[in-house]
Structure formats: C-alpha cells, structure tokens
Write a protein that binds this DNA or RNA. Structure first.
Lengths: 237, 237
DNA sequence: GTATAATTGATTGCATGCAATTTCGCCACA
DNA sequence: TGTGGCGAAATTGCATGCAATCAATTATAC
C-alpha cells in the first residue's frame, strides 16, 4: 500500500525534467513554453503539461500569464536581491537546527555528499552546480523541518535560475572548500562560525550576480529539451 | 491590457473559497473532498476543482493521495510544532524588515487594520480570527518581500488549520492588545521589543494548541459549503 | 462463523474536443 | 517608409468521455 503511494505521477517526472532543464540553463529565462509542443515532446497530453507548468509557476520558476501561456521566469534584479537576502536568513535557520540535531550519522551523510562533490570537481559544469545546490538541500533535510526544506529548495532553485540570468556562465558558484569548512564548524558545534561561513558563502555567490545583461527577446527553441523529454517518455525517474 | 492580466481565473476564486471554508472550520480536517461533488456545488467541471485542490495541496491545506482523492489536511502534532516554531522565526524576519521600511504611511496602514480589529471585536468568531490572521499578513506585505509574504501566508493558513484540530473552539487566538503593543514597538523602532512581543504573542497561541483530541473518521458533509460555493457561482470575488 | 475471493459502484488519471482569446502576417492607406 | 486595422493561425480555458484504480459488499469455500 505504501508502495503504491510512492508511485510517482507522470506530472512529477515532467516537472522534475523541466526544472532540471531550467536549472541547467537548457531553457533560458524568457523562453516560451507552449503546452502542446511540450506535450508532443514528452509524449503526453496538454493536461499533464499544464499541471507541471502550474507547479513550476508556484515555485517561481515559470511565469504564467492568462491566455498567454507560460515562459521561463525572468526575475528582475530587485526580486533577485530579495531572494538572495532571504536565502541567507533562511539558511541561518537551517544551520541552527542542524546543530541541534547533530549526530555521527548526520555528519556521515554530509561528508558523503562532500566526497561526491570532490569526485565531480572536474566534471561538467551543470553537474557540479547541481551537486552544490544539493548540498544546501541536504542540510535543509537534516534540519528535520519539512516546511523549511521546501522553502530552501524553492529559494535555491530560484537563485539558480537568477544566476543563469545575471551571472557569467562559468563562475564556480559554490566553493567545495567552503562547504568543507561549514561541515567542520557543524562538527564542532560552533554555531556562530557555521552561520558566519554560510552567510559569507552565500553572499559571495550573490555578489557575483551583479551584472545587468541586455534584454533578449522571448525565444522558442525547445530542441535542446530532447534528452530530458526522452527520459520521461522512456519512464525514467 | 494590464486589466486583463488582473482578471482572476475561476480557479483562484474556487481555491480562495475553499481556503476560507477550511480556515473558518466549515470544512474540518479529514473531510473528503471529491472532485465531482465539489464541481457540482461550484458549478464548474472537475478540471477546475482539481486545479484548486492541487493548489491548496501545495499550500499544505489539503492532502492529495494518488487514486484516493483529496481531503482536508490533518497535520500531526509533530508537524504542528514544527510549523509554529518556524512561524516565530519567519515572523522575526518580517519584524526586522518592517522596522527597516518604517514610515508614517506604513504605520497608518497598520493602525487602520487595528481599528478594523477593534470594530469587529464582538463580531462572530470566524471574522475576528480572519482579521487576526490578516494582521500578520499585512505585516508581511509591509516587509516588502514577496517571497516572505507568501511564506507567512502559507504558514499562517496552516497554523490556522492546525488550531481547528488541536485548540478548543473559542480561544481568542490573537489578542488585539498584543497587536497594539507590537505596533507601538514598531513605531518607536524598538526592534528588540517588537521581536520579543511577536515571539511571545505567537508562542502564546501555539501553547494553547497542546490538546490532543480523539480521532474522528473522515466525514463527507459538504452542505455547509453552500454559501461559499454560491458566491463563486454568482461570480463574486 | 470466519476468511478469502469476486463483483459492483464510486472516484480519479488522462486524453481529447470545442469555444474563446491572443498573436502575427498582410494589406491598405497616410 | 511607417502605421493601423483585419483576418487566419496558433494557443489557451474549460468540459466531457473513457479507461484504470480503489473501496465496499456480496458470494463462496473451509
């Protein structure tokens, strides 16, 4: 019975695929996302596409305008600043909760993740960005608060999207070294230091996002989506 | 053109109606929400009902289980505690932002709202609960951060739902007096006091929610929804 | 009499169809 | 050359239909 509850809806797969595509800069901000083109690609009807788009809209990754369809969100600089500021404050909450819950098992999880990051250090950029994001999400998971986890996820994703608009392509968005230091501080239970490190870590990322880039028209160029769609069509996770 | 953007979808109206019904304890936690009964009541097809339910599920007010339909969420005590704890921390962020933005206009808005609360002091319980919730939401609005606003809304709603499960029916959930004191502290720019007051205010509410009530089966009793549905059918906001 | 299997009824998952709205190309006209 | 309007194509908003799944109840065996 629980197994059947765990069955993922196709909607989940599609929104995950689209989310990945957005975060990996395959779908750039401003691109149009017509329901039936997407439906064709993913091999499903507009119904499911629409659901996925609505979900992503709730996360702030796509904008949905009445009778005008969906497009990848294009956060303004102001929104971006708000987002990054909130992020540091929210992750502050994460830190203090993780410290409260600290345990050897928990530490092991963190270090396992760090190891993955190190292993992928010279892999492709999208992968290392994803891993870096997942470090923050892992921390949120370990905070023990489902709601906090959701917020960190959402803000993290949106910050990632923002970076694809305002940051130059190949900045190492999250230093592995910094992650290591944070884990170190958590290990010794030094909340103050951990917070400071995290704050520094995040503002460093934010500060790199100060470039105002010129406007580009809303393009429609979904071919790059193909690999993501294929996975869903083939029933992948 | 902007006007057309502001047109509310019927989905918005329906989810608002359902949200109100839940928060005003017309739909109690655990009640089943079948798509077609609701569709009939609201005079729309299952399509729109489904969208609304999904939106409410994203907010945590409704639980959605595969092939089993929707029901009003029934947060566990543990989830409730998490929610209330997070709420105090999130509203801390609100306070410090509002203090930064403080201005006479802003103060006027707050006092106008307080006046409304006073005026409705002896009105029906649902109304005063709603106004009390809206005080917190107004503060979040004045914080200037759209994302923070969304989070405060969501957490506020979910706390309201929780109270309908665990608190005794007629506790004055938010003291008007306490709201007044908070405004006072904000006026003088005393962040420390404002925070302390808010924290005290919120934990007072949370502590009233310590009663474990016995289990009730998932009922289906939608007749009480009628007034909410009527408004939507008639095209009201 | 209890337990298990099979059938029926209710409810959701998803696709499709039609009407309404928007967008875009085209042509007239200043 | 640039601008305004008009019609066709594209796209969304919503309802409905059918298949799949789940819940409940009856039937059957032990």
């Amino acid at each position: 019975m629980k197994a059947s509850d765990k069955v993922k809806h196709r909607t989940d797969m599609i929104s995950s695929a689209l989310r990945s595509a957005i975060l990996e800069r395959v779908l750039m901000p401003g691109m149009k996302l017509p329901e039936d083109s997407l439906g064709e690609r993913f091999g499903v009807s507009r119904t499911l596409i629409r659901q996925s788009l609505e979900r992503l809209a709730a996360e702030g990754l796509v904008e949905l305008r009445r009778n005008k369809g969906a497009m990848v969100a294009k956060p303004s600089l102001e929104e971006a600043r708000d987002l990054f500021e909130l992020r540091t404050q929210i992750e502050d909450l994460v830190i203090s909760r993780v410290i409260k819950n600290m345990s050897p098992e928990l530490l092991a999880e963190l270090e396992a993740h760090l190891a993955k990051e190190v292993a992928a250090e010279h892999a492709s950029e999208p992968i290392s960005i994803r891993l870096a994001t997942e470090f923050h999400i892992l921390l949120a998971k370990l905070s023990g608060s489902p709601v906090l986890l959701r917020y960190v996820e959402e803000i993290g994703y949106r910050c990632g999207l923002t970076l694809s608009l305002y940051a130059r392509p190949h900045s190492t968005d999250c230093g592995i070294q910094e992650h290591r230091q944070i884990i170190e501080a958590l290990k010794t239970g030094d909340e103050e230091t951990a917070r400071k490190l995290m704050r520094h870590h995040l503002t460093a990322v934010a500060d790199r996002a100060l470039f105002t880039t010129e406007e580009g028209g809303p393009l429609l160029y979904l071919d790059a989506l193909e690999p993501y769609a294929k996975k869903v069509r083939d029933g992948g996770a």
